[in-house]
Each structure stands twice: as structure tokens, then as C-alpha cells.
Simulated scan of single mutants.
Amino acid sequence: MNASPEDPLSQRPSRIRVDLDRLSHNLRSIRAHVGVPVMGIVKANAYGHGLVPVARHIQAQGVEQLGVAFLEEGIVLRQAGITLPILVMGGIFGRQAVQFIEHDLEVTVSSLDKLRQIEAAAEALGRKAVIHLKIDTGMERIGVHSYSAAPFIEAAVASRWCELKGIYSHLACADDPGSPMTLQQLERFQEACAHFERIGAPMPLRHLANSGGILHFPQTHLDMVRPGIMLYGVLPDPVSRRTVDVKPVLSLTSQVIYFKVVKAGNPVSYGATWAPTRNTRVVTVPIGYGDGYPRGLSSRGQVLIRGHAYPVVGRVCMDQFMVDIGDDSAWNEDEVVLIGEQGDAAITVESLAQAAGMSAYEVLVGLNLRIPREYRYS
């Protein structure tokens, strides 16, 4: 939600703006590209965009399912009135099993032991649990290995207290269109799924494709896809190809809060790591790594002011950083774009991540709740 005038956050000059029209556009583009239902991934505060507002919007746009990482994310969505099916994709603890069922959350079952825990909780409540089986095809994270999945599948099919809705795996290298591992994982997953036919059981919903799979490997689209970072208009890796027309949803702006002339040789910020070689004009921007703006952008990042790109100089501080504008002019309260567009210039999440030596994922999820968020239609 947008901050109210009474909210202290509304006074902050730094803010994230989320373009809901672009979010709708991205969802439409993904659906047109894949031709199967979409599970919108909203874990990690919807990749920094805001868990509840994003979920509400894409629910209104007709997305078929939501995916989160943790039980608590699913509970927050239920408490906010989200009625869509929600799959919790992370590993679970046995003591959580009852809460999954009570909050009508779909469970990732990643082992026979977890299956038994969910069955026991469902029987105790007298309500069936909705489950998705997790098959490990090469991530070695959670899930039953594809080559030993037969007993696991048989136990799930035979369960009296679990409704088997889906089966899935996760692609490790699909962000790279040239990686041979994705097709190897697809083959392993298909072999595991073939066991349903061997035992005469109906095939559950198969889902495998993450953002990379959607972009590069149509063979992995199967019965449902799970777009994460690309739903927000950002490519998952520098080598990824923009095969789907998605647009960046998030922008991050602040304002000039201070202006001064720094004399040649006078160092700027902590550690005295940068000093101008001639007298120059430096402005201060009131946002820093305490908000999630990466410290790795010290003397490496750029911002936009009045449609021009200027370098971040000196170390990024917890709450502020400095920008060298040379002989140009800037006034207090001038807009500073850290991510987004200004005039004909733009700074993308991908370019900022590359400058900071990070992934685009890290940049987005690092933008914390100290920055107010506004939700707008373009």
C-alpha cells in the first residue's frame, strides 16, 4: 500500500515505485509465451516489490497460483485475504505441518519422512493436506533423487490424508541458454514422472520451468511455469536472452539533500578512498547500504540527475552517499534516480548489479522496508 500522509515514511525523500501496469503487462507476456497456467512467485517480499500488494494485483489479473518460500509468507497472504492456491516451496519442519493445513497452504513434500509428518497432521485435523512432491534432478538442495523416486511416488499416491496435486523440480542452470544441464534435468524429471504411468496412477500437475526455463527452454514448460524475477521485468543472469517482452516494474529514487564544492585533493567519505583531482561539485543523497543500496557501488555506481549520469564517489555510507556532478548544477530536492528512467537515460537493476559485483536477485531482495513503496499505474 502507498504510505499515508500521517505515516513518517511518507516524509522520506527516498522511495520505491512499483508500476502495476508493467506488472500486468509482464504477466500477460509470460502467459502468451508459455500457453500454460502461471504460478507467480512472490517470495522474499515479492523480490523487493512488496508481498501483499503484488499478490493482490496479480490475483486480480487472474494468475492461477502463487508460490512462496516459507510458511510465514503464506500465512501473511492468507491474513491479507488472498484466496489463490499458494504453494510453500521451502523445506518444512514437522511442527509446522498443522499450520499448513489450517491456513489452506499447499505443502512441498521432499521426503517420505515429511510425507508421514503431513499425513499425521492431516489425520489429526480430519482434513486432507494438498501436497506437491519435490524431485531432486540436480540441485542437491531438497527433494528425493529422481533415480530413487519410485517408492516416494507410490507412498504419495496411496496416502489417505494427502491430496497429490503436483510434482516438481528446480532448474539449476536454465538462466544460461547454452547450459546442457537443463535438458539433463528435464530428462531425469520426466523419467521420475513416468512412474505414475507404470503404476496406473493419474499424472499430477508437473511444473519445472523457472524464469530461465521460460526464457530459454520451452520443453520445460509442461503443465505450469513458475516465473520469479522475470515477472518483475528483470533478467535472471547477464547471459539470459530477453525472449519474452517484459518490462522493469520497480524504480528507486531519492533527492539531493546537500550540495557543496569539494577542493582538489580533499577526500570524500569513509576511508578517504576517493578525492577529486580538481575542484568539483558534490551532492549528497540520503540513502545508503542501510536501505539496501549496495556498498559495492562505492566509486563504481552511477545515478541520474536532470537526465544525466553521474558517478557515485567515495564509500557508500549506511544512510547516505555522495555524487560528483563536476561543473554541473543541482539543487536540493532535485530527483535522483538510482534504478529506473529519467528523460532518455536509464539505470537498470541488471547494470547496477553488474557494477556492484552482485546478482540482480541480491539487489532486488536487499531493498528493505526502510524504503517506502508506492504502487502506481503508468
Rank of each mutant, 00 (worst) to 15 (best):
M1I: 12
R17Q: 13
R17N: 12
D21C: 06
R22Q: 09
H25D: 12
R31H: 12
G35N: 08
M39V: 04
K43L: 05
Y47H: 09
Y47S: 04
H49C: 13
G50D: 04
G62A: 08
V63N: 02
F70C: 05
E72D: 13
I92Y: 00
V98Y: 09
F100D: 01
T108M: 07
L112T: 10
I118G: 00
I118C: 02
A124P: 00
V130C: 08
V130Y: 03
M139F: 11
E154D: 13
E154N: 08
G166I: 01
S179M: 06
M181Y: 12
E191N: 13
H195I: 10
I199C: 09
I199F: 06
A201R: 08
M203C: 09
N210K: 04
I214T: 05
I214A: 03
R226V: 03
V244R: 03
I257Y: 06
I257G: 03
G265E: 12
R281M: 10
V285M: 06
I287V: 15
G290Y: 04
D291F: 03
H308R: 15
Q320V: 13
V323E: 05
G326L: 05
D327C: 05
A330C: 09
E333C: 09
E335P: 01
G343S: 09
G343F: 02
T348K: 01
E350F: 02
S351A: 15
S359Q: 11
V363C: 02
V365D: 02
N368L: 05
P372G: 04
P372Y: 03
